[in-house]
Amino acid sequence: MTDEPLSPEASLALIVEEQEAARRRLDVDPGSFLIPWGLAWLVGYGLLFLRYGPDERVLVSMPQWLPLVTLYALLVAAGVVSGVIGYKASHGVAGESAERGVMYGWSWAVGFAGFGVISSRFEPHLPDAQFGLLMGSLPVLITAILYMSGGAVWRDRHQFGFGIWLSVINAAGVLAGPGWHSLAVSVLGGGGMLASAALRHSRRS
């Protein structure tokens, strides 16, 4: 057993190293969620824009079902990746912050399950363009609210501010109409997430 006391320098270095290693594995970096969600939005809403452009223009021809199916598949994948990241960090941790994280994680799952129910209920009753706009804007609204709540729970102004940003582009896109909404969410929402992930990364290294 290597248990001889260390020199003060080595002890301090060991403390820093051990604390950093523990934090890396126990804390969830909110930035790690930005890449899967950013990609899902950039690609999913990007396809929606190209297939269902402003004034019902088809900018790039592709099967009608492709954009929404791609978007939802990518959103589900992003949800699964987020769940795995959250679980890996938080399993085996009990107490206040763990409860907070678990409840917050469930808010995402329950929120999006509710969205699934609403979308299947309204699909047969709305004209295509209106249905598309509703189905495109609800996930953004849910995500925006959850980012704002996450900011409140962890007192993280960046998260809160990003939630506000998403709310604003979502509302502006809905007002501008089908097509424009997809473009705004794809570039300013999804692209914004990827840009802020890149910014976080460059700041850390």
Partner: peptide, 29 residues
């Protein structure tokens, strides 16, 4: 001041106040 216990205490100090860590996870860390 014993190296092994210093590592245990340093790792546990990374937890938020009011949190506990399962033995196998601490062992893994």
């Amino acid at each position: 001041h014993a190296q092994a216990r210093l590592r245990v205490v340093a790792a546990l100090s990374a937890l938020a106040d009011g949190d506990r860590l399962a033995f196998p996870r601490l062992q893994g860390l």
